[in-house]
C-alpha cells in the first residue's frame, strides 16, 4: 500500500510538469506583477516648505536636510520598508509607486547615504571571484532578529518556482562550508554574539550580505534597548540588499551580482535605465 502511494506521488509530481520559471536576468522576472517596490522620487515636483513625506516615513528613509527646494529632501532606500505612505502623503506627485524591486549594491552610498566598507576579501578578490567560486556559492543564513518576513522569502528561493539550485547556489548548515553569510534582522543584543561566531567559523575568502531593510540600516525595528542598526559597524558588508522584504528575484539578482554573473543595477539611489519592470506571463 505504502509503495503504491509513493509511486502515486511520483506520477503526480511528473504530471504537474516543470514549475520553474524562466530566469531572464534582465530584471523583468515572471511572477512579480503588481509588486509595489521602492517609490521613485522626482525632486522637481517637490513643493517648497512641504514635509509631508518625511512625516509619513516611519524608518526615516526620507529626511529633510537644511536647504531650499528640492535640495532639502534626502532619500535612503537602505531604510525604505516599501510601505508607500510617502506616495499617499505627497500632495504633488514627487513620490510615485513603482514596480522596482530592491536591487543589491556593494556600496551603501549607492542606496544613498553613507559610504560602505566592503571587506578586504571583497576588494582584493573582485577580479578572481569567478575563479575562486567557479560561479557557485554556498550560503549560511543567520537570522539576527528579523520579523520572519525575510525568512519567508528566503525559504521561497528553494520552492519549485525559483529553484535556486539551478544557479549553483545552495544554503548550507555549517558555516565551515559557507562562502557567504546572509544576514537578516537588525541584530539583537542576544544574536550579535552568535552572528560573530558564525562569521569567525567561516573559511576565507568569505562574503557578507545584508538582506532587508533591518540588516541594511535597522529599518523600522532597529535601535531601542534590544537592537542594533543592522550590520552597520558589526561586520564588513559586501552586498547591501534593501527591501522589506526583498522579493525572491531581487535576492537571486543580488547573489548573482556577488558572483559577477550579472551587473549591478542601482547607483545613486536610482535604477539604471532599461526594462526593470516585472514580467508576468506565468499563470
Amino acid at each position: 500500500m505504502a509503495l503504491k502511494t509513493i509511486s502515486l506521488w511520483t506520477l503526480y509530481g511528473l504530471a504537474r510538469g516543470k514549475a520553474t520559471s524562466r530566469w531572464r536576468g534582465r530584471g523583468a522576472e515572471p511572477g512579480q506583477a503588481g509588486f509595489l517596490g521602492l517609490p521613485r522620487f522626482n525632486p522637481e515636483k517637490c513643493q517648497e516648505g512641504c514635509r509631508k513625506c518625511a512625516d509619513a516615513c516611519l524608518p526615516g528613509a526620507i529626511r529633510l536636510a537644511p536647504g531650499a527646494g528640492d535640495e532639502r529632501v534626502t532619500v535612503d532606500y537602505g531604510r525604505c520598508v516599501v510601505c508607500q505612505l510617502c506616495v499617499e502623503a505627497c500632495p504633488s506627485g514627487a513620490f510615485s509607486s513603482s514596480e522596482d524591486w530592491a536591487f543589491g549594491s556593494p556600496m551603501r552610498e549607492d542606496l544613498v547615504w553613507t559610504r560602505a566598507g566592503a571587506s578586504a576579501d571583497g576588494r582584493s578578490l573582485q577580479r578572481e571571484i569567478r575563479r575562486v567560486f567557479g560561479r557557485s556559492l554556498h550560503i549560511r543564513h543567520v537570522d539576527a532578529g528579523s520579523c520572519n518576513g525575510c525568512e519567508s522569502e528566503l525559504q521561497a528561493l528553494n520552492n519549485p518556482y525559483y529553484n535556486l539550485h539551478r544557479f549553483g547556489v545552495f544554503f548550507t548548515a555549517s558555516p565551515r562550508f559557507a562562502d557567504l553569510l546572509l544576514v537578516t534582522g537588525p541584530v539583537t543584543y542576544a544574536l550579535r554574539g552568535p552572528l560573530m561566531e558564525t562569521y569567525e567559523a567561516m573559511p576565507e575568502p568569505r562574503f557578507v550580505m545584508a538582506a532587508g531593510a533591518c540588516a541594511v540600516s535597522g529599518g523600522t525595528n532597529g535601535g531601542g534597548y534590544a537592537c542594533g542598526l543592522g550590520l552597520e559597524g558589526v561586520l564588513p558588508v559586501d552586498v547591501y540588499l534593501p527591501g522589506c522584504p526583498p522579493n525572491p528575484p531581487a535576492i537571486i539578482h543580488a547573489l548573482l551580482m556577488l558572483l559577477q554573473r550579472v551587473p549591478q543595477r542601482v547607483r545613486g539611489g536610482q535604477l539604471r535605465s532599461g526594462s526593470e519592470r516585472s514580467g508576468d506571463e506565468h499563470a
Binding site: V82, C83, S152, N159, P160, C244
Partner: peptide, 30 residues
C-alpha cells in the same frame, strides 16, 4: 515526502503571487 514538500511550497508561491497582484505586497502589507 519530497513531492509533497515541493507541491506545498509551489502552492504557497502561487498564493503569494496572488497576494502581490491584490495588494502590491507578497505579505499583503500596506
Amino acid at each position: 515526502l519530497k513531492v509533497g514538500e515541493a507541491q506545498g511550497k509551489y502552492l504557497e508561491e502561487l498564493a503569494k503571487q496572488a497576494n502581490c497582484r491584490v495588494s502590491g505586497s507578497r505579505l499583503l502589507r500596506g
